[in-house]
């Protein structure tokens, strides 16, 4: 009688441990599949973006920028905002290198 009760208790304990392990394991799988940045990281990026944008704005030669044809001006302004040379070059209809030469003339630094 006592032996049967011990066995049943052991089975119950085993099943509880097994369930807990499964829950933890599945939770881990779920966590591993989350591929989004944390709130702290997003805040850090936001602050970094702001700092870098201010630096690009501060150094930019606005006189030169305002004299450019509309699509070049738009690309330079996009670059000041976002700091992405590749997309800015696409806006300007230029290669990355061609855009980079204009960026240098406009005195806009790459901030990294």
């Amino acid at each position: 009688m006592i032996f049967k009760a011990v066995i049943e208790t052991c089975i119950i304990i085993f099943n509880i441990i097994r369930s807990v392990k499964l829950i933890v394991f599945e939770k881990n799988i779920v966590l591993m599949s989350i591929k989004t940045p944390s709130k702290e990281l997003l805040k850090e990026w936001e602050e970094e973006d702001k700092e870098f944008r201010e630096i690009r704005k501060k150094y930019a030669d606005w006189n030169y920028i305002n004299k450019q044809p509309p699509h070049i001006r738009a690309a330079l302004i996009y670059f000041i905002e976002k700091g992405d040379r590749y997309v800015a070059a696409k806006i300007a209809g230029l290669t990355v290198e061609e855009f980079d030469e204009i960026r240098r003339k406009a005195n806009i630094p790459v901030v990294i």
């Binding site: 970094e48 630094p109 790459v110 990294i112």
Partner: peptide, 13 residues
């Protein structure tokens, strides 16, 4: 490097 490439490294980095 900053002069030749017109870069500015962030103060933090």
């Amino acid at each position: 490097y900053e002069i030749d490439t017109k870069h500015i490294f962030s103060r933090k980095r």
